[in-house]
Every structure is written in C-alpha cells, then in structure tokens.
Amino acid sequence: MDLIHPHSKADVLEVLREASRHRTRVLIVGGRTHMDKGNPCETDVELWTTMLDDLIAYEPAEMIAVVGAGMRVGDLQRALAEADQEWPVDAPPEATVGGVIAAAAVSPRRLSVGAVRDSVLEVELVTGDGRLVRSGARTVKNVTGYDLHKLVTGSLGTLGVIVQVALKVRPRPQARRTVLAGGGLETAARLLERVPLPAAVLATPETTEVRLEGWGEQVEEQTLAVAGSASVIELLDEAPFPLRRPWEERALVLEAAVPPSRLPELLAEAPDAWGALAGVGIAWVGLDAADGELAVVRERAARLGGIAPVVKGPGGLGDAPVPAMEVHRRLKASFDPAGVLAPGRFWGGI
C-alpha cells in the first residue's frame, strides 16, 4: 500500500485530482484511532493528514479555534488549556481533529457537551475530484447556505478530505469530579432525574459513574444530590472520565445508539462488559469476537429504533437501512464523481 503525506492543501488537491484521473482508490487516515468504524473496503493508497497540523488561529475570547485537520487532539487540547479552554470531544490524544469529525466520535460527556457536529463551525474540504470547498463561517452562528460541514461530519472519508476546520471551544470547568455509585442502569436513571445538570451519567452492569463539572461550589451541591439518591463508593477529583472502559478490553466494541429509555432492553442480555450513557442512549458493548453475539445486539438495537456500528475490531457498520438513498447517491456522485474515496466504507455500501 502506498502512503501519501501531503504537506499542504495544495498537495491534497493535487493528490486527489491525480487519484480521480487514474481511478486510484484512496483511504484517508488521521490518527488511526477510529479506522475500525466503517465497512471493510479495498483501497490502493493511504492519504495521511497528519502533516496538516497547524494551529491557524485561536482567539480565546472568541471561543473559536481554527486548525489543520491533521492536528492531534492532544496537541490541540494542550494549546487550549493554556487559556483554560477545551474542545469537548474526549477522543484519544493521538486522534486527529479531522478524524474525530469524520468519524463523528461520541463523547462520554455527550449529555452536556452535545454531538461533535455541534462544535464544527467551518470546514474546508478537498472533494474526491480535487476541488477545495469551504462551508460555514468562523462565527458561533451562521445561516449562510447549505451546511456542507454537517454533511462531512460522520462521512468516514467518503465525500472528501477535511483539511481545515473552525471549532467552537468552551471554558474548561473549574472543578471536575467523578462520583462512583453502586448500582447499574436503574441507579443511573434515578440519578439522572435527581441530580441537577450532571455532565454525564454512565452506567455499567454494577456501578454508575456520575460526572460533575462546573464551579467548585456547584460540584459540592451536586455531590450532595448524588449521595442522597445512591450509595456512594468513591469521590474522585480531577480523575479521567470514564474511570475505566472495560468494554475496550474486549476484541470488539459496538457503539449502539437507541432512544435513551430503551437502554435497559438493549442491554438486558448483553455480555457484562458495557457502559451506557443515561439520558443519551449510547451504549458501548464489548464482545469477544464477531460471532453470533454481534448479530444479536445489532438486531435488538434495530428493533428498538437504533443502530450498532462496530468501533473497534471487525464487523463494520451493519446493514441498517439508509433513508433517502437516492439523495445519498447523488451526493456521493457530486463530491466524488470517480468513486475513489474508500468505496463501500460508508453506510448503504456507499
């Protein structure tokens, strides 16, 4: 497999023009941390974005950072931390910004920080046939035409190479605490109801981690509310969240998404390595192999109105129906007319 390391947007344009001309199939690679999300596909070259890693503009008082898409999340967070800010995505430090966006990685703090797409204000994209297009603006609000940047968030490298983005960042909370409580999903549901505005409530089979973030006094106030509604095992300040990710110790991890109230049904018979975000409806389920269990969880997620792509290991995205398939096909044909960008990697075989 050939590797290509573009140093500039101009390089990327050139590479994709050539690829389209010669029908060379391209797999776009960032930090390689989210590559398992996507269907298996055959490609001829890998395009690495990691040299496109400039911090282009960052004005803390605007809460906006403009960066090259190949910038490592860890480097970005360090730069932001100097001004006491963060990009609230919680991806591994070696992941790239563009990769997190293309994979629409889900933050364990989704309850309070929202989806990745909500933080992407502007994108510069090189299309499959080598055109540079920009969408959005470097402002927190913007209704100026069609939001291409929404379209490419989660597109798994099938519409173009994200080369540069403007991100909405936010102040880092002054206090961060994880309260570990006894009890799984039922406890989590109770805590979600009784604790005012938690940053996250993550249930595992036997315990619940409540993440509290904000002003010092506020976190104390919320801690009391947790203690009043569950048996507290441990209080940990400044600890990582989640404390542990047992599902990641398995060979295969599914990222199921269902309406939040359906989590108990989804997980009723699941093997014991899972973590579920109460009030959100995301569950990471660890499995030992891509055998029958994968199909069972998937089928169940589908029945509950959701999906369950694999995010670690083999197994792909699954065969959930894609709405408006014709619209999808036309989009793919417009942005990647020669079909060179990871053909088949996306939902619906796109």
Partner: peptide, 23 residues
C-alpha cells in the same frame, strides 16, 4: 417521505437532517 435523523442519538447515513436545517 423520508425520516432523517433518529430518535436515537446517532443515525445511519450522512447527516441529511443537518442539511435540511437552515435550508
């Protein structure tokens, strides 16, 4: 008639929901 997006936090396909919003 198509349903774009999902009652679940993530959905299959491109974020056409996000394109319709503001269109």
């Amino acid at each position: 008639v198509v349903r774009l997006g999902s009652e679940a936090p993530e959905a299959a396909g491109y974020d056409l929901r996000g394109v319709v919003i503001g269109s």
